[in-house]
């Protein structure tokens, strides 16, 4: 997807001091003569963001089809059409949905556990210099170790089952949540704390009503990164250490030499990840509407 889109918020410059909006020039004005002949509508649709995305997707599938025809090995690279057929078949059997639900519920548990530990710890580390001095070296030591590195050890501890993927994902989700929470608390605008102090607000109330909401946009960013990292890690964990889930399904159909089905699950992972991020973005806008105005975005 395109990384940037033109922000179409009204600028402050368009707002008069008293608060009334200035008479804005309608954006259609420039294309008005063309619109009279119907060409304006066509151009607007043609240039719209979703239509560009659609074309981009079509080009991608086209290239894939060409490459598949050139490789000519359904085992190595099945064509888009065969993958689509396989997906329809798997969807009819309910396998796509059931496996997605299994993986998604593991992800949900992992994100919840990670957030419950990482967010309060992040606040504590940002607010206490001493605690930070104790924990920061350990965090920095563990952070570069990929979650996947713990899978062999996890197999000894948890065995093959649902616990191992949850453990790996919790580990992976923990660090972005922790570090973004710490950053969010540290980057708080000192003026806001000063304002609260001069209004006679106690330290405890400052924490609840200033520090926590001020850090929330950064925590939300951390949550989105945690989600993306955990979703990437779950496949590896389920591939090796689980009897169910999307990662397991990929490995299962690989062993059966059914590439179209392997591809079906790969496509599904991408689609679910993309759609979930859209939901998280919407949630972010809903929970921290002011952050957009501050220019905080990930």
């Amino acid at each position: 997807m395109p990384a940037t889109m033109p922000k179409q918020r009204p600028l402050n410059a368009a707002v008069l001091p008293g608060g009334e909006r200035g008479a804005a020039v309608p954006p259609q004005a420039a294309t008005a003569p063309a619109a009279r002949y119907g060409a304006g509508l066509f151009l607007r649709v043609w240039r719209s963001r979703w239509f560009i995305a659609l074309r981009s997707f079509a080009i991608f599938v086209g290239l894939w089809a060409l490459l598949a025809a050139w490789v000519a090995s359904p085992l190595q690279l099945p064509s888009p059409a065969t993958v689509f057929d396989a997906m329809v078949g798997l969807a009819r059997k309910g396998e796509l949905l059931s496996q997605t639900l299994i993986s998604a519920s593991r992800l949900g548990v992992a994100l919840l556990v990670a957030a419950v530990i990482a967010v309060p710890l992040g606040f504590a580390m940002a607010l206490s210099r001493e605690l930070n001095a104790y924990l920061d070296p350990i965090v920095e030591l563990l952070r570069p170790i990929s979650g996947i590195a713990w899978i062999p050890l996890g197999l000894f501890i948890f065995g093959v089952g649902g616990t191992l993927p949850v453990f790996i994902m919790t580990y992976v989700a923990f660090f972005p949540l922790l570090l973004n929470t710490i950053d969010g608390v540290r980057d708080i605008d000192r003026k806001l704390l000063a304002a609260a102090k001069t209004m006679g607000v106690t330290r405890k109330a400052q924490l609840v009503h200033v520090v926590v909401p001020a850090a929330l946009p950064s925590v939300m960013v951390g949550f989105r990164i945690a989600f993306a990292s955990a979703w990437a890690a779950i496949i590896a964990a389920e591939l090796i250490g689980s009897p169910s889930g999307l990662g397991f399904s990929i490995e299962w159909y690989r062993q059966l030499l059914m590439s179209p089905k392997v591809f079906s699950f790969i496509v599904l992972i991408g689609v679910v990840g993309y759609l979930s991020d859209l939901v998280l973005r919407a949630l972010q806008r809903k929970l921290t509407p002011w952050a957009e105005g501050l220019g905080i975005d990930a």
Partner: peptide
């Protein structure tokens, strides 16, 4: 203290 109120240069309003 609350008996001395401050109005800051850039207002310091709580954005949330």
């Amino acid at each position: 203290g609350a008996e001395r109120g401050v109005m800051f240069q850039d207002y310091a309003l709580f954005p949330w």
